[in-house]
Every structure is written in structure tokens, then in C-alpha cells.
């Protein structure tokens, strides 16, 4: 099972958990597995087109999945997935 770490903003949509152990062979399968248990979760991380929201970053171990195979990135049983909010702003 992959270890999935969730940011505070997503925890209310995932049963209040800070992390989950999830079965899945790709990032998409992992996110779908979480969503099958917590239906509110999916809209927090994926667009209606099924792509990652631009304000969410997903890491497989040390690598941003956008620079790998995106949602089709393969996941191993000992992998660590981190979901993090994108943080931006400024005085403009």
C-alpha cells in the first residue's frame, strides 16, 4: 500500500485523516480509491475533465507527478505520495 499524506485543507474531505494507506497502481487509481471511500474528495483534487487542479501539487516521493506521467504515474507499494496546496499571492 502507498502512504498518502494529505494537507489540512483536504482532510475534512477525507474523513479527517492526515494520511491514508491506499492500494493503487497509479496516481489516478490512488485518488479514485480515496474518492470511492470519501466522495467529496475527488472534486478537491481533480477537475471535471479528470485532470489535477492547478492549485494542487502531487508528489510521488520527491518528484512532482506533473513532470512524470501525471495521473498515470506508476505507484509502488512502498511509495509515498504527498498532496500539497499550491501557495501564491502578492501585492498586485
Amino acid at each position: 500500500m502507498a502512504h498518502v499524506r494529505l494537507p489540512t485543507v483536504l482532510r475534512p474531505s477525507a474523513g479527517g485523516n492526515s494520511s491514508l494507506e491506499v492500494n493503487g497502481e497509479s496516481i489516478r487509481e490512488i485518488l479514485e480509491a480515496i474518492s470511492s471511500k470519501y466522495p467529496q474528495f475527488v472534486s478537491q483534487v481533480l477537475t471535471e475533465d479528470g485532470e489535477l487542479h492547478k492549485f494542487v501539487n502531487v508528489y510521488l516521493n520527491d518528484d512532482d507527478v506533473r513532470y512524470l506521467e501525471k495521473l498515470e504515474t506508476k505507484v509502488g507499494t512502498d511509495d509515498r505520495i504527498s498532496i500539497l496546496p499550491a501557495v501564491a499571492g502578492g501585492m498586485e
Binding site: 501539487n57 512532482d64 500539497l84 502578492g90 501585492m91 498586485e92
Partner: peptide, 23 residues
């Protein structure tokens, strides 16, 4: 990562490492 005087975006990798440190 914007390297700007008017806007900012926190390096996503810094968020990753901060989250690990927090854990």
C-alpha cells in the same frame, strides 16, 4: 519562484519538505 517584487509563489518543493518536517 516568481522572483518578483509584486507576486510570489512558494516553491512547491519547499512545501513538500516543510510538510515532511511537520510530520
Amino acid at each position: 519562484i516568481e522572483n518578483s517584487a509584486r507576486i510570489y509563489t512558494i516553491d512547491p518543493k519547499a512545501m513538500l519538505f516543510a510538510d515532511r518536517l511537520a510530520e
